[in-house]
């Protein structure tokens, strides 16, 4: 592997790892707060899938980087400007509709994304993606089921679901940006071209929203920045909490 590819692959793996870590952390915040016990278990499962995936990806990122950093050093010792996740993953959990709206957007993207990535010429990424496909199938079933139930539930839930979608909608387009780093890896048969998944994603979301008797949000704004380390203000607080032990007691084994 040449130096450029190595650097790109590190960056790319880190991005996917940070996506999984920040979203998994957010979902874990639902512990003991779900609307009922079965849902506590379901969200626990989903959060665990993301944290488990983060561990695999960050471990691999450390190996590719080859500077001796492990999953924990990458997770706990980088500050906000070094974090590379999509903004949508770091947003606060909000209410149950907010969480399900975010999940629908992400899950509907991840399923085809990881299906494609499971064909990557990078064996490790292909393996991680293969596992992620099975998880994403369940995640998408779960989130789209809830969006339908809430959209086509009561007047109150319909309103909350519509509101949640319009709040998160503008964070969706960032998922489809393929920058130079990823384009070079696409050319090398390693990464997945994101833009190509957009129409299928849009159609999938529209199918769910139709069943949910919800309209596609009419919002004109969209933001990005996570891949450049330009984040919402929420992430700093997440990191302050997540990294507390490693920062307060540096260099120890736990």
């Amino acid at each position: 592997m040449d130096a450029q590819t190595q650097q790109d692959l590190f960056e790319y793996t880190l991005r996917l790892g940070d996506d999984a870590l920040t979203l998994g952390h957010r979902i874990s915040e639902w512990t003991s707060k779900a609307p009922f016990l079965e849902e506590d278990i379901a969200l626990g499962n989903i959060g665990l899938d993301f944290v488990g995936r983060a561990r695999l990806l960050l471990t691999y990122a450390g190996e590719v980087e080859n500077l001796g950093r492990d999953e924990d050093q990458l997770a706990y010792l980088r500050d906000i400007r070094q974090y590379r996740n999509l903004l949508i993953c770091e947003l606060p959990i909000g209410n149950f509709a907010d969480t399900m709206a975010r999940q629908l957007l992400v899950d509907a993207f991840e399923l085809p994304y990881f299906q494609a990535l499971s064909q990557s010429s990078d064996r490790t990424l292909a393996g991680i993606a293969g596992k992620a496909v099975k998880e994403a199938q369940y995640h998408l079933r779960h989130s789209s089921g809830w969006v339908v139930r809430l959209g086509d539930g009561t007047e109150e839930s319909h309103g909350k679901m519509a509101d949640a979608l319009s709040k998160v909608w503008g964070y969706g387009p960032e998922m489809f940006i393929t920058d130079e780093v990823e384009q070079r890896l696409v050319d090398a048969g390693i990464a997945v071209q994101r833009e190509e998944l957009r129409d299928g994603w849009q159609a999938q979301i529209e199918r769910v929203l139709e069943e949910a008797t919800l309209a596609v949000p009419d919002v004109s704004w969209q933001v990005d920045g996570g891949r450049r380390g330009e984040h919402t203000e929420y992430l700093g607080h997440m990191l302050a909490e997540m990294q507390f032990m490693q920062r307060a007691y540096p260099g120890l084994q736990w």
């Binding site: 707060k33 779900a34 609307p35 009922f36 849902e39 209410n95 149950f96 339908v148 139930r149 809430l150 086509d152 539930g153 009561t154 109150e156 839930s157 909350k160």
Partner: peptide, 13 residues
């Protein structure tokens, strides 16, 4: 906080 969610699930079902 979950009341409206449970009610929605019930109404939908």
């Amino acid at each position: 906080d979950g009341t409206w969610v449970r009610e929605a699930a019930q109404a939908h079902a």
